[in-house]
């Protein structure tokens, strides 16, 4: 199996998204870390996706635990 260690932004951003839904393989993690460490766009992309997740959790929601 050929292991592609150099990712394009398209591949990297997909792995960034998938890392929020599944555990990446060891190779994927290494490749992604390498890419993000040199790519400003993808490191922003990562931060922004995490921010969006937090923002969605902060959406007005009646499900907040009430004081009993």
């Amino acid at each position: 199996m050929r292991i592609t260690i150099r990712l394009s932004c398209k591949e990297a951003s997909r792995l960034i998204s998938e890392s929020m839904d599944r555990r990446l393989s060891f190779t994927e993690r290494i490749a992604l870390r390498l890419h993000v460490s040199v790519c400003d766009a993808c490191s922003r992309f990562t931060r922004q996706l995490l921010f969006i997740r937090r923002a969605l959790n902060a959406l007005p929601d009646p499900d907040e635990p009430e004081s009993r």
């Binding site: 394009s8 400003d40 923002a55 902060a58």
Partner: peptide, 30 residues
Amino acid sequence: FGSDGHFVEPPGEWESPEKALEERRFFEAL
């Protein structure tokens, strides 16, 4: 993404996203 796999429009820097969480209008945009 372009055919070379690069972002067509790379993500820009988001200034103080934390502050957005305090604004009702941000959630409307969301």
